[in-house]
Computed example of a mutant assay.
Amino acid sequence: MTVGPPCRSTTPTRKGTDVFLRRLPRPPRPLEQDQHPIPPTLFTTGGSYNDTNLAKTLSSACTSAVPKVGQQPGRLTRACVPTFRAQGRGRVINVTSYTGLHGNVGQANYAAAKAGIIGFTKTTAKELARFGVTVNAISPNAETRMIASIPDEKRAELAAAIPMGRFADPSEMCAAIGFLASDEAAYITGVVLPVDGGISI
């Protein structure tokens, strides 16, 4: 998928976000559709978790994932709005998770962060629609480094619960992201698209 300038994905850390925002160029002058056929697109993703039972955890651990995961999409989206308005269109694609949609034992902090992204996605979709900007999210179920860190026995148990019987390769998320970034998805906004092998059924 080609991502239209100047918005790109970035690290979810505050330091990384600050660097991104400092480097963000001024909004370009509006271009004709045939000069820049791909809408300017912002794709945000990040994951940080500290699994523990809520009754046993320290208060700092309970909320630690929220600023790491949940705040950066807002800062980045706000920075890209001038570009979107100058172009008269744009795409924001965020990444939430199964846990953000359904919750999961031992992941109250992570669930809060990812559920917050869903609320942010839906609210921002309403606010930016009048500027021709769509805001959507995907809920993936891919074999990331976070999944790879799970003990083998537990990971096999999780994979067995997926109707398709496996975690996706991260590259299998690209088609969904590319579609949401395309002109074909210009009338789709505020949705969460599960790309999860059926685990959320």
Results as ranks from 00 to 15, higher is better:
82 P>F: 13
52 T>S: 14
114 K>P: 01
126 K>N: 14
42 L>P: 03
91 R>K: 15
117 I>Y: 03
120 F>S: 10
108 A>T: 08
137 A>G: 00
123 T>E: 08
144 T>K: 02
67 P>E: 09
122 K>P: 06
79 A>H: 07
41 T>N: 02
17 T>H: 13
99 T>G: 08
138 I>L: 10
108 A>I: 02
87 Q>A: 10
36 H>S: 15
45 T>D: 07
37 P>G: 05
18 D>C: 02
40 P>D: 11
121 T>I: 08
55 A>I: 15
132 G>P: 05
77 T>G: 05
72 Q>T: 04
44 T>D: 01
16 G>E: 12
83 T>M: 11
103 G>M: 01
87 Q>G: 05
127 E>T: 01
46 G>W: 11
28 P>G: 03
91 R>G: 09
115 A>Y: 07
93 I>R: 10
88 G>R: 12
75 R>T: 12
94 N>T: 02
64 S>I: 01
108 A>G: 02
41 T>M: 15
64 S>N: 04
19 V>R: 14
65 A>V: 05
34 D>L: 13
114 K>S: 10
134 T>Q: 13
102 H>W: 06
10 T>H: 15
18 D>A: 15
76 L>G: 05
18 D>S: 14
58 L>M: 13
145 R>M: 01
113 A>L: 12
138 I>N: 07
69 V>S: 10
75 R>A: 14
96 T>Y: 00
115 A>Q: 02
15 K>C: 00
